[in-house]
């Protein structure tokens, strides 16, 4: 039982990071019907932005909560900027082109960020400073809960609630939902849909940047290719929940995180990475629209 709890805590915390990244995939898909394959690499950039920021500001020397939040905010802001630049430079010129063109471009942007990252940051892994000193919140014979997964979970949930507020309660959020539903009708309302699309990239990339920092807290070895697998898995999480569906992305991320840690804990850790893709195969066979997704008729 205690071991199960242990796995559950880790799984939920890990799942909340998948959820953060999956939200970016699903929101961009919502407004553009584009799988932004560069999204996982923006997550990687988040970790590197945090790494350099905390070194330059000397935050890395001593773990403080303030230092952690400053680093988090910096990485989010920098990733938001990168996300908007990617959208304006790579995707916007292709707005009226077939969807496949943008999809291939997304793969190109992803390769650019990965190889550009290797050029800029070096191929060798770097060690992310421990911005938070690990303490044990609870300890018994078989169960140890440290503060890290709890902080990860709390920060992720706070960001998701903030996102929910923006999407559901603000004017720009309403414009996002309208644009996702029908871009042309949204334009007829006086919504500048190009700005809404950029704003969507801004939000998604900021969340990916936060994900990069949160992952680096637990797995401090960061390298320019670190976004590849988590990016792919977060994409699976988004499809699992129903691509384009915001609560679906959160649900998909959580399910993926928990199943991964359970499989690693009870069966074999070598199967950890396989479970995501097994889930993808199953969901595509059983319910291709995802758990919370609904079939949307082709727009005429």
């Amino acid at each position: 039982m205690q071991e199960f709890l242990q796995q559950l805590v880790n799984g939920v915390s890990w799942g909340s990071i998948y959820a953060l990244i999956a939200l970016g995939y699903t929101m961009v898909y919502g407004v553009l019907q584009l799988i932004n394959f560069a999204h996982g690499d923006v997550f990687m950039l988040g970790a590197f932005f945090g790494f350099y920021f905390s070194r330059w500001t000397k935050i890395a020397q001593e773990p403080t909560l303030f230092g952690f939040f400053a680093t988090l905010l910096f990485a989010m802001a920098a990733c938001a900027l990168v996300g908007v630049i990617i959208e304006r430079a790579a995707y916007k010129p292709l707005r009226e082109r077939p969807r496949l063109t943008a999809l291939i471009t997304a793969i190109g942007v992803s390769l650019l960020l990965e190889n550009g990252g290797q050029l800029l940051f070096g191929v060798d892994p770097k060690f992310f400073p421990s911005l938070i000193s690990e303490t044990r919140l609870y300890e018994s014979a078989n169960l140890v809960i440290s503060n890290l997964p709890v902080i990860i979970l709390v920060v992720s949930l706070a960001l998701m609630l903030l996102l929910r507020f923006i999407v559901m309660k603000t004017t720009i959020g309403k414009a996002m939902r309208a644009t996702a539903f029908n871009r042309e009708a949204a334009a007829l309302m006086g919504i500048n849909t190009n700005n809404v699309i950029s704003f969507t990239f801004l939000l998604g990339s900021a969340l990916a940047g936060a994900g990069g920092i949160l992952v680096a807290l637990t797995y401090p070895k960061i390298d320019p290719l670190m976004g590849l697998l988590p990016g792919l898995k977060a994409f699976v999480a988004a499809v699992l929940g129903g691509i384009g569906n915001i609560p679906g992305a959160v649900l998909g991320g959580m399910i993926l995180g928990v199943s991964e840690t359970m499989v690693a804990g009870y069966i074999s850790s070598t199967l950890r990475d396989a479970i995501a893709f097994a889930l993808l195969v199953v969901i595509l066979l059983v319910k291709p629209t995802g758990l919370l997704g609904s079939r949307v008729g082709e727009k005429v």
Binding site: K174, A175, R177, A178, A186
Partner: peptide, 15 residues
């Protein structure tokens, strides 16, 4: 081309 996923009020507000 109404926004089916938004409420009636939100549709009017978007107008």
């Amino acid at each position: 081309k109404i926004f089916a996923n938004l409420t009636v009020r939100e549709n009017l507000e978007l107008g």
